[in-house]
């Protein structure tokens, strides 16, 4: 065949679905993520509390197992929405730590090494790229937040007499809703910071600073200006207030209005999306 006859023709085979293309990103990302021992260790450690909770629920309904222990009369605390609220609160710390170590290493290298144009030259657009990377974190964080908590809920529902599960179905809804809010917020904010600063170490430092500085500023503004609105800067406190709303537990959210807390979390997510929209482009202007 002559060189002149080698002209490009469009692909005529069956195209892969958008979802299949999207799932390529997490598949390779997980391989990279779990190469780090720290991430593997942290991910494993994240299951300690849910496993402990499963044990507690089981012991609560198996008094015989406690017969020869100081807790022979049974566990005094109820398995209710507050129990699940505190479980989710604990898991949210693990989720933050995991995001801190995972997210910068899956986003920043693509931008530093100029890999984004290569991704976007494939049949994948910017938002599919964002969704693919987001999926890495969403699946990882879901595995340590709402999934194990739902297992605990199901165990309690199966061991409790009567229709405990149906009566308390709102708890399961709260677990899923609150967890998804946390997962999406953490993922978007971490991705935006990673895309913005491009250096994984600095992104981690910024994420950490972003968690502790607004908290301290919020507390001080609250004291000096005698208002709790300063705490709206503190996304941790806002998340705590939302948890209070869902589960009725007392988190140190300092009397933030619930609507304000929701607004703060949604605004942070929207800002993160905007930052991603500006930073993730197939071209780069080098000055």
């Amino acid at each position: 065949m002559t060189v002149r006859a080698r002209n490009f023709r469009p692909y005529v085979g069956a195209p892969t679905s958008a979802l299949a293309r999207l799932l390529v990103l997490p598949r390779y990302a997980y391989r990279e993520v779990f190469k780090a021992k720290l991430v593997t260790g942290l991910f494993t450690a994240s299951f300690i509390v849910p496993v402990g909770a499963l044990l507690v629920v089981w012991l609560k309904h198996n008094l015989a197992a406690l017969a020869r222990t100081p807790l022979a009369n049974g566990l005094s605390f109820p398995i209710d929405e507050r129990f699940f609220g505190f479980l989710l609160l604990t898991q949210s710390y693990f989720a933050f730590a995991l995001t801190l170590f995972v997210c910068p290493s899956i986003v920043s290298p693509d931008l530093v090494n100029g890999a984004l144009p290569l991704y976007l030259s494939r049949p994948i657009n910017r938002w599919q790229y964002v969704a693919g990377k987001l999926l890495v974190l969403v699946l990882l964080l879901s595995a340590i937040t709402w999934l194990p908590l739902l297992v605990v809920f199901l165990l309690e529902a199966s061991l409790s007499p009567g229709s405990w599960g149906f009566t308390n179905i709102s708890i399961a809804g709260s677990i899923v809703a609150a967890s998804l809010l946390l997962v999406v917020l953490l993922s978007l904010v971490a991705m935006a910071i990673s895309a913005w600063v491009r250096n994984p170490s600095i992104a981690r430092a910024l994420l950490f600073a972003g968690a502790v500085i607004p908290a301290a500023i919020g507390r001080i503004l609250g004291r000096l200006l005698e208002t709790e609105l300063g705490r709206l800067l503190d996304l941790g406190a806002a998340w705590g207030r939302v948890l209070e709303g869902f589960f009725g537990i007392a988190v140190r959210s300092g009397g933030l209005p619930l609507t304000g807390a929701w607004l703060a979390l949604l605004s942070a997510s929207a800002l993160a999306l905007l930052a991603l929209h500006r930073k993730l482009r197939a071209f780069e202007v080098v000055r």
Binding site: I213, A216, I217, R219, I220, R223, L224
Partner: peptide, 9 residues
């Protein structure tokens, strides 16, 4: 109040 700022922030 300044001591709180100094210590916490």
């Amino acid at each position: 109040d300044f001591a709180i700022l100094f210590q916490n922030l």
